[in-house]
Amino acid sequence: MRIFLEQMLNGLTIGSFYALIALGYSMVYGVMKLINFAHGDLFTLGSYLGFTLLVWGNAYVTSHVGLAGGMIAAMLIAAIGIGTAGIIVERIAYRPIYPAGRLPAVVSALGVSIFLENIIMVLWGPRYQAYPVNVVPTLRFEIGGIHITLLQIVILIFSFILLAILYYIVQKTTFGAAIRASALDRDTAALMGININTIIFFVFALGPALGGTAGVMVGMYYRQISFTMGWNYGLKAFTATILGGIGNIPGAMVGGLLLGIFEMLGSAYISTAYKDVFVFLILILVLIFRPRGLLGEKVAEKV
């Protein structure tokens, strides 16, 4: 039982990363019907940006605002930076291609992905980079026999705050209703007076911003980052999107958390080597038996 709860906790931590990244895929897919393959690499870029801020800016920032302030600053700057990068990518690589249909946009997205991956390699070098140790003090607590580190608590709190804010924006505000309406039917939403360009701008800024924040958290949690890690996280987060129902924002959150828990329980009880195989098997089974995802509405795709 103790192992089960600890694995649940680890799964929840990883799942919160997947959920944050998955939101970017889901929002963009909802509005644009485009799988943004560059999203995984924007996430990596966020991780590297946070790394630079924490390593180079560490001494300066921590002496002025303390450790916690330095960490929040790193996440914030990474979020702003990656949000801007997301908008630039949309302007340069996606916007001119929309009229040509969806397939050229996929190739363009793959091109951006290769470009970003290599620009990270050129700027930071091909080696693994290690996050500093002392970002969050290495403290361990024991609650009812379950070990939990301070780092995990911090990550869980931060990601749940972010998820809650996004949930509030999307589900409770007028602007959120506009996003959901555009995801449902873009043309009709435009006829109803919704400014689609604002929505696209927002979606391409906020999705990558959340991904960039997740990048900093992944760096702090695993302490090791590489320029190729975007593919792996991107693919997993994308699986999470499908699991929850593509284009459905609460679905992406739930899907991400569930995927993290599946992965951890699978590696604890069945086989570590095959944990990724289980992830993809779940994906395929979900698509065969419930293609709209766990929380998705029934949609008839146009041919």
Binding site: I92, A93, P96, I97, A100, P104, A105, V107, S108, L110, G111, V112, S113, I114, F115, L116, E117, N118, I119, V122
Partner: peptide
């Protein structure tokens, strides 16, 4: 590969 990625985007544009 950086050039390659950029070329793919330009090509599709």
């Amino acid at each position: 590969m950086l050039i390659f990625g950029a070329a793919m985007v330009i090509m599709m544009v």
